[in-house]
Each structure stands twice: as structure tokens, then as C-alpha cells.
Design a protein around this nucleic acid. Structure first.
Length: 245
RNA sequence: UACGAGU
């Protein structure tokens, strides 16, 4: 059943849900019973494909079979609704999960914060972040990067930087996503020097930029018409063995 | 064996 699940997971990652479902049905016809992990895999697959209705159908199926939805299943579904910016449905599930005694974790909260940010509800995202601290959850790099990204999208770079510093003082190490988010934020506000400073800081910390980081960084130069700097970065990328696509 | 952040 682990093997089957891995196979289904693979199809889900490729977005090939018809085949994922086929494997799931094959398991049933071979007389195995579906477990919560298999449901979790298929539900998450449909959530990622923005087919939340199908995901919800499996959610009801598993309940009908007498299985109990767990934290992962709820997190996936909450993420599915957030992806289509249906915040009220996401919150409905969030409440439902809590009413069943399931305690939200970092993933749950980050998913919600991300959803709020996407919906432009940064204030609500901030509230979630506050709740996370109050409940004594161990914030991690994803928690911080998610909320920092919310501030960056609003162009509130002073606050973003404050949170970044707070993160450091809590001994949570930023990664390339954290830095990329900051660079994009500085691009948004037109603070080119800070974008460059952030990029340099990242490299000094020994964090290796990837194509997302470089793209964001270069975009800043493009927007200010500094084509010469773009060429410089391209050269550096080639030296680092990056294929320019 | 399934869930969260960046162009």
C-alpha cells in the first residue's frame, strides 16, 4: 500500500489525476481498503490542481468509510480553498478541524496566512501570526517567510525588515526563499540599493541563489534601465554554471 | 508512504 501511495503521489505531482484515481481504484478492486494516507495523497493532489470539489468529494468518502480526517487532510483542504481565495470556506474547515479537537500546526497557520495575503487581507494574516506566537508554536523559517512576503507584497519594507531581524534574533536562519521575497519587495518599492545589499548579504551567508533569486534580482535592474548591470549578473550566472533560459 | 513560503 506504501508502494501504491508513492505511485499515486507521483501522478499527483505531475498533475495527472486521472491516472492517480485509476491507481486508487485498482487498490480497491484488489481488495485492499483505503487508508487515511491514501486519501490524504489524492485529496492534496486535487487541491493542488484547483479541483477542490473533487477533493471535498473524497473528504466525504473517507468519512463515510468511517475514517477520521486528520491534520494533514484538513491542511490540504484549507490550502485548496486558499488557492482559489475562498477564505470563508478555508476558515470553515479550520473551525471544523478545531471542533474535532485537532490542534492546528505550523502548516495550518502558514497556509491560512498565505491565503489571507493572497486575498490582500494582510491584517488578518498578522492576526494569525500573532496567534501562532501566543499559542507557543515554534515558528520556523516558513512561518517567517510567509508573513514577510505578505509585508513585501504590500511594499511595507520597514516592517518586513523588522520581522527579518526578529527571525534572526530567534535563531531562525533565513534561506534563499526568504531573501528572494525581500529582494522582490525592495524591487517593488524601487529601493535598488537595498535589493542589491540583500542579495550580497545572502551570498555572504553562503546561501546559493537559484534562478528565482537571480530573476528577481535582475528584474530590479531592468526596471531601472541598468542594462549593464543585467549583463554583469548574467556573466556571474554563467560563471556559476547557470544555464540562462 | 500524504500537508505550508519565492520569479
Amino acid at each position: 500500500i506504501y508502494t501504491y501511495n508513492s505511485l499515486i503521489h507521483g501522478f499527483c505531482n505531475l498533475g495527472r489525476m486521472e491516472e492517480a484515481v485509476k491507481v486508487l481504484n485498482e487498490i480497491k478492486s484488489e481488495g485492499f481498503s483505503l487508508d487515511i494516507v491514501l486519501f490524504g495523497t489524492i485529496i492534496n493532489g486535487f487541491c493542488k490542481k484547483k479541483e477542490i470539489d473533487k477533493a471535498m468529494a473524497y473528504f466525504h468518502d473517507l468519512i463515510d468509510l468511517g475514517l477520521k480526517p486528520n491534520k494533514i487532510v484538513y491542511n490540504s483542504l484549507i490550502g485548496g480553498y486558499c488557492r482559489e481565495v475562498n477564505i470563508s470556506k478555508a476558515i470553515e474547515l479550520f473551525d471544523d478541524m478545531k471542533s474535532k479537537g485537532i490542534v492546528p500546526n505550523n502548516v495550518t497557520y502558514c497556509t491560512l496566512m498565505h491565503g489571507f495575503c493572497k486575498a490582500g487581507q494582510i491584517e488578518d494574516a498578522k492576526k494569525i501570526f500573532k496567534t501562532m506566537k501566543e499559542t507557543g508554536l515554534k515558528l520556523d523559517v516558513v512561518s517567517y517567510t510567509t508573513i514577510i512576503n505578505g509585508y513585501c507584497e504590500m511594499g511595507q519594507m520597514e516592517d518586513a525588515r523588522k520581522l527579518f531581524d526578529e527571525m534572526l534574533s530567534n535563531n531562525i536562519l533565513p534561506n534563499k526563499l526568504t531573501y528572494t521575497v525581500l529582494i522582490q519587495g525592495y524591487n517593488k518599492t524601487g529601493e535598488r540599493e537595498k535589493a542589491s545589499g540583500t542579495f550580497n548579504e545572502m551570498v555572504e551567508r553562503g546561501i546559493v541563489p537559484d534562478s528565482f533569486t537571480y530573476n528577481s534580482f535582475v528584474l530590479g535592474f531592468c526596471e531601472s534601465g541598468k542594462i549593464g548591470d543585467v549583463a554583469k549578473v548574467f556573466d556571474e550566472m554563467s560563471e556559476r554554471g547557470f544555464e540562462l533560459d
